[in-house]
């Protein structure tokens, strides 16, 4: 469904991507996780035609992103990191314009827009000018817009950045619902819990390279199940254990303060790169 091989992107002397390769099968929820500047958005911009790759090969549903660029673009919907709705136009006009760009016939377009407005809970705001919507509504509308042409792949670039916890959870539920309808999801995020909660597989990206790809459970299991965080010289040192008993025994033997918790993706990333995702 999504295939890319040896993808490279250079901005002058700076290498944003250094030969990344990946295969995401149909219907999978895939998360691309890494700190700011790791190359997540660059990958996504290349795949969606916003940025030219320096070298490599990439296919969306079998269509080469440069040689069959128009066909490749029809396969995917994009939810960009920055909300790029037409602020002066209404909710309906924004969706209608997208449908026109993807050449959806008028009757089908109208039906799809109404269906999507119900889906995202904005049916009663279809005549509202976008600039008057809240941040969460705009984000939901951006997701709906990407679905007007019924893409088989949905790219989401940090879709919940800047949103509060409650709205973020609503967005997660919406994205999960979209995947349940058979859409392949490719999500970039630097929120650990987002990738852990939503994704079936995760790729860790660091300094333009993929350093690990696996299920969240497998990546976490590489480190252990339980972790103890200890404050040592103004820093936090973490020790990992296979079982809770091992962790408890370790802490019982020490008098210093500590906290016991389950291992998460952040630990897995930290172990591989020596740095945190955020």
């Amino acid at each position: 469904m999504i295939d890319f091989k040896d993808l490279c992107k250079e901005y002058g002397s700076i290498s944003a991507l250094r030969g990344v390769s990946l295969h995401v099968p149909k219907g999978e929820f895939f998360a691309y996780l890494g700190p700011n500047g790791a190359g997540k958005s660059t990958t996504l911009r290349i795949l969606t035609g916003l940025t030219k790759m320096t070298s490599g090969e990439a296919y969306l549903n079998g269509f080469h992103i440069e040689r069959d660029s128009l066909q490749a673009k029809r396969q995917c919907g994009l939810v960009p990191q920055t909300i790029n709705l037409d602020q002066e136009l209404t909710v309906y006009e924004n969706l209608n314009l997208h449908g026109l760009l993807f050449r959806i016939p008028a009757r089908e377009r109208a039906g799809k827009i109404h269906e999507l407005l119900d889906y995202i809970g904005l049916a009663d705001r279809k005549g509202s000018v976008v600039s008057r919507l809240s941040g969460g509504m705009k984000r939901r509308l951006t997701i709906a817009r990407a679905l007007v042409h019924s893409p088989v792949i949905l790219f989401l670039d940090e879709p919940t950045v800047g949103l509060d916890a409650g709205i973020r959870r609503r967005i997660w539920a919406l994205i999960k619902k979209i995947q349940n309808n058979g859409t392949t999801i490719f999500l970039t995020t630097h929120y650990i819990e987002e990738a852990e909660f939503l994704a079936e597989r995760v790729a860790f990206l660091d300094e333009g390279r993929i350093i690990a790809v696996d299920t969240p459970e497998a990546l976490i299991a590489r480190q252990g199940t339980w972790a103890i965080d200890r404050v040592v010289d103004d820093d936090i040192k973490t020790v990992y254990f296979k079982t809770r008993e091992e962790a408890t025994q370790y802490s019982a033997a020490r008098e210093e303060s500590f906290s016991l918790r389950r291992v998460n993706l952040e630990d897995a990333f930290l172990a591989l790169t020596g740095k945190k995702v955020k």
């Binding site: 035609g49 916003l50 673009k73 960009p80 920055t82 790029n84 760009l101 993807f102 050449r103």
Partner: peptide, 14 residues
């Protein structure tokens, strides 16, 4: 400013 141009870039139009 609005990044609306990206919507056109990502659309299948020549």
């Amino acid at each position: 400013y609005w990044h609306i141009f990206e919507e056109f870039q990502a659309a299948p139009i020549n």
